[in-house]
Design a binder for these strands. Structure first.
Lengths: 302, 302
DNA sequence: TCGAAAATTTGTCCTAGACAAACTGGATGT
DNA sequence: ACATCCAGTTTGTCTAGGACAAATTTTCGA
């Protein structure tokens, strides 16, 4: 019943900060300063874990750890988002007021009302417009709300889970595309976000492409094998805006070596907007790009 | 085009063996012995990564690393599964031949044939029987095939992805349960397996319970908050058979402190079969247990 | 043959040092 | 005003080897 405390592994789990980073911060910045248990091992009180979670969130929003840790407690929580991209939204569902309403349903934890509202929108707009004008902006909106701290983790999970269901359901009603190209869809390890992948799948399936969804977090070696086994024309990867940009070129590079020569490599999602062009990889920052890329592929593969 | 090599982080990603373990094995057993790059950092050739993946698989099947590493290369691959539990299957879809046929479709990478076969079974058996007699045994079957090495990772992903879709689709056709109890469904960090959760959700929803699916891998603190926000009567966690058993009691212990007093904690799935009973936690090793637990809950909560 | 005690195996934690990649801020050139 | 380059700082990840507790196997005695 006494206040629980966390060992370093538990803190890593709950904050997403690696053990190495936790020790390094302690050494460099003097925070966090955990207690020590009988074996001299770190034991973090809940307040420090809470502060670490807040810091991590702000870091994901573009702040730097050195500054954040130096900042005294209170006005940490007041810090505004600071993403470099001013987020030039391309199409938005009319007023973004509509998005706010949907988000409000999530914040009220009213899953069924959210589902109902979304299903209504889907019926009204049709799948393609629904994805491009509602789901995609809403996902961005949720990402921003999360970075601004106005959304709890479990609220984001609820949003993701319900939206996944909507999209999967919509996809399953499409006629199983049997036309070329054949596309393997997945993401790399450490990229668990699945909504981008599902949106892409829905749009590609609408174009009649044959989609092979493999879920998220495939080891690179396995992606190569899957491409071979499925004789994929295209391997499409999704990188969310939260994925560390600097790791992307290396991953794509490594992967392009592992793929069979007959498979193209496409990389899409908010994560690739500012990735430099590279040989052997097609970059598709927006969903529109994906749709037109299909047309392009068909034009060059009679 | 030259043979790619892996730094220690990439090996951790692809094998699931932590950096600490990789360095420790090198020190203790003399394997793996990576090359060193210009900065003196480890650089693993693909063969060693491959061997490590094999060793990890056999460890998950119950073997011990010391023995495995000592074993010369060739007959490693011949090693049989060695799970302690002889896997007393309770109900099986008639002959397990049916399962083999379904599995064969996956191995042929024929997703649409698999979906069709499963949909047919669902229509014939009804949802409850379908889950208990087909999906659950099939999932075990896949787990065993994976441990025996007869299934590639990407094949398992395909199976999981397609089966997820089937279950979600089936769930969405059920009338949204609005009766008590209200159940939050999720899993702890490091437990990414979602099929058990979906099977449980389907069965619980069939009983008319109100299910709130939050997806997998919720930090413990967030689970507590979600329970509170949703005023959950029950928090249901799923542990797959692959989850390290020894970590479960600690997690449940910690979580039971974090939950509001009005929420019960249920833990189910193949992972809890051999976990000792503990105060404040209801253990549900099988799906049948979950169904009867609902009846029990309703009997005690008028 | 069973159960307890001893020995072993194994993972995780610890400290402390090094360095490269990424970012910052300022100076310079167009 | 804007792009580009350079130096300085910040930051994460890697390295080494030591320690120990928890889990498992083996040994020994009843």
């Amino acid at each position: 019943m006494n206040s629980p405390s966390f060992n370093i592994a538990a803190v890593e789990r709950d904050t997403g900060l690696s053990k190495d980073v936790l020790r390094m911060w302690e050494r460099r910045y003097g925070f966090p300063v955990p207690n020590r248990d009988g074996n001299g091992e770190r034991s973090y009180p809940p307040e420090q874990v809470e502060r670490l979670r807040l810091i991590k969130r702000l870091m994901d929003a573009g702040h730097r750890p050195g500054k954040l840790i130096a900042t005294p407690a209170e006005e940490l929580s007041a810090l505004a988002p600071r993403r470099s991209a001013p987020n030039t939204v391309i199409r938005d569902a009319g007023a973004s007021g509509e998005l706010d309403e949907l988000l409000a349903l999530i914040k009220q934890h009213d899953g069924s009302a959210y589902l109902q509202a979304m299903q209504q929108l889907l019926a009204r707009q049709g799948l393609q417009q629904f994805i491009q004008d509602t789901v995609a902006p809403l996902t961005r909106h949720v990402g921003e709300a999360w970075e601004a701290g106005s959304l709890e983790v479990f609220e984001e999970h609820l949003f993701t889970e319900l939206t996944k269901r909507l999209l999967r359901q919509a996809i399953s009603t499409l006629p199983g595309g049997k036309r070329k190209p054949r596309i393997v869809l997945t993401s790399v390890p450490d990229e668990p976000h699945v909504l981008g992948l599902l949106m892409a799948e829905a749009l590609l399936a609408l174009e009649g492409a044959e989609c092979i969804p493999l879920g998220t977090q495939m080891p690179l070696l396995e992606i190569g094998r899957a491409a071979e086994a499925h004789r994929a024309d295209i391997v499409a990867l999704s990188f969310s805006a939260a994925f560390p940009q600097r790791r992307i070129p290396g991953l794509l590079q490594q992967l392009s070596v592992l793929l069979p020569a007959t498979s193209e490599l496409w990389a899409g999602g908010g994560g690739v907007t500012r990735v430099a062009k590279m040989a052997g990889v097609v970059l598709l920052p927006t969903l529109d790009d994906a749709v037109s890329a299909i047309a392009g592929w068909r034009a060059t593969h009679p």
